[in-house]
C-alpha cells in the first residue's frame, strides 16, 4: 500500500516502474498467502515481468520525467472518494473474511472441489475449472491476448514516419 502511494507520487517514471514491479511482487506474495498459487505465479510473471519490461521500453522512447501538474485535481479526488465510499459501504454487509460458510464456499465452489477429480482425474482444480468447466472463458482469454497481439501489431508493425507527415496533417486539418 505504501508502495502504491509511492508510485503515484513518484515523478521519475523510471522509479515508478521499478516500484510498480515491487508492488506486483508483493501482491503475488499476498496471493500466495491467500492460497492462490496459480494466481501468484501469474501475477509475478506478468506484473513484475512483462508489464515492467514494456513500460521500460516505452520510457526509453518518451520523457522519463513526469511533468508537474498544476494544483490538485479536486474533481478527480471527489470521484475517487465517492467510489471509495461506495466500496466501503459495500463491504459493510460482506460475509466474514475466510469463513467456510460464506456463499462462495457453499454454492458451486464445492462442486469443483469434490467433483473435479472424479470427473476428469486432474488434481489441480484450478486447471480443471480453467480448461474444462469454464473453458469458453479461457478461450475468450486466449482471444483477448490475441486481440492485444493483433492490435499492438497493427499499431507498431509499420515503421514510423516522423514529423513531415505530421506537418502535412496539420495543414490539411486547418484548411
Amino acid at each position: 500500500m505504501i508502495v502504491a502511494i509511492a508510485i503515484v507520487r513518484a515523478k521519475d517514471l523510471f522509479a515508478a516502474a521499478m516500484l510498480f514491479a515491487i508492488y506486483s511482487l508483493l501482491s503475488a506474495a499476498l496471493f500466495a498467502v491467500l492460497d492462490a498459487g496459480d494466481v501468484a505465479l501469474t501475477e509475478a510473471a506478468v506484473g513484475a515481468g512483462i508489464s515492467t519490461i514494456l513500460v521500460l521500453a516505452v520510457l526509453a522512447m518518451a520523457r522519463r520525467q513526469e511533468r508537474p501538474k498544476k494544483g490538485h485535481n479536486l474533481l478527480a479526488l471527489a470521484v475517487v472518494v465517492v467510489t471509495g465510499a461506495a466500496l466501503i459501504y459495500a463491504t459493510l454487509d460482506m460475509p466474514e473474511f475466510g469463513a467456510p460458510d460464506n456463499p462462495p464456499q457453499v454454492h458451486v465452489g464445492p462442486y469443483y472441489v469434490e467433483q473435479s477429480y472424479p470427473d476428469m482425474g486432474v488434481p489441480n482444480m484450478v486447471a480443471a475449472v480453467l480448461a474444462s468447466y469454464r473453458s469458453i472463458d479461457t478461450l475468450g482469454e486466449g482471444f483477448v491476448i490475441l486481440v492485444a497481439g493483433l492490435a499492438v501489431y497493427a499499431l507498431l508493425a509499420t515503421p514510423p514516419r516522423r514529423r513531415k507527415k505530421r506537418r502535412d496533417h496539420g495543414q490539411e486539418e486547418s484548411s
Binding site: 519490461i53 514494456l54 497481439g149 499492438v152 507498431l156 515503421p159 514510423p160
Partner: peptide, 23 residues
C-alpha cells in the same frame, strides 16, 4: 499464443525505438 504474443510485444516495442531514431 501467450508465448508468441509476449515475444511479439517485446519485438515491436524494442524495435520501435531504433526505427524511430532512424526516421
Amino acid at each position: 499464443t501467450v508465448a508468441t504474443v509476449v515475444m511479439l510485444f517485446f519485438t515491436l516495442f524494442a524495435r520501435r525505438k531504433s526505427q524511430w531514431e532512424a526516421a
